[in-house]
Computed example of a mutant assay.
Amino acid sequence: MERAAVFDVDGTLADTNHLHVTCWWEALRQAGHRVSMHDVHRAVGLPSADLVAHLLGGDRDPDRDAELSAAHKALYGQYFDRLAPLPDAGPLLKRLHRDGWTVVLATSAGGAELGALRRAIDADEAITATASADDVEQGKPAPEPVEHALELAGVPAERAVFVGDTVWDMRAGSRAGVRCVGVLCGGIPRADLVEAGADVVYDDPSRLLASLSDSPLA
Rank of each mutant, 00 (worst) to 15 (best):
R95F: 05
Y76N: 09
K73W: 13
P62W: 03
L96H: 00
F80G: 04
W101I: 06
W101A: 07
S69A: 15
T102M: 08
L83Y: 10
A84H: 11
G58L: 15
D81V: 12
A66H: 12
P85Y: 08
L68T: 09
L68N: 05
P85C: 06
S69I: 12
D59V: 00
A106D: 03
P87H: 04
P85K: 08
L96Y: 01
R64G: 02
P62T: 00
D99V: 04
G57A: 07
D61T: 06
R95N: 04
R95V: 13
A70H: 10
G57E: 03
R95S: 11
P62M: 01
W101E: 09
D59N: 14
R95M: 08
Y79H: 15
L105K: 00
T102N: 08
Y79W: 14
Y76H: 14
D99R: 15
D61S: 03
D88A: 13
P85G: 02
D63H: 14
A106R: 04
W101G: 09
D63Y: 10
D81Q: 12
Y76G: 08
L105H: 06
R60V: 10
G58P: 11
P91C: 07
G57V: 05
A71D: 10
L68I: 04
R64H: 12
V104S: 02
D99S: 11
D81I: 05
Q78N: 11
D81N: 13
A84Y: 06
R95E: 15
G90L: 04
L86W: 03
P87G: 06
P87S: 04
S69W: 10
Q78R: 15
V103I: 08
L96V: 01
P91G: 07
R95A: 12
L92W: 04
L93W: 05
V104R: 05
G90I: 00
A106G: 05
D65R: 00
L93D: 07
E67A: 15
D65A: 00
L75F: 08
T107F: 01
R95Q: 12
A89W: 00
R64Q: 14
A70S: 12
D88C: 10
F80T: 09
H72D: 00
D99L: 13
K73T: 15
L68P: 00
D81A: 15
D59P: 01
V103L: 03
H72V: 04
G77T: 07
L75R: 13
F80I: 05
V104M: 03
D65F: 02
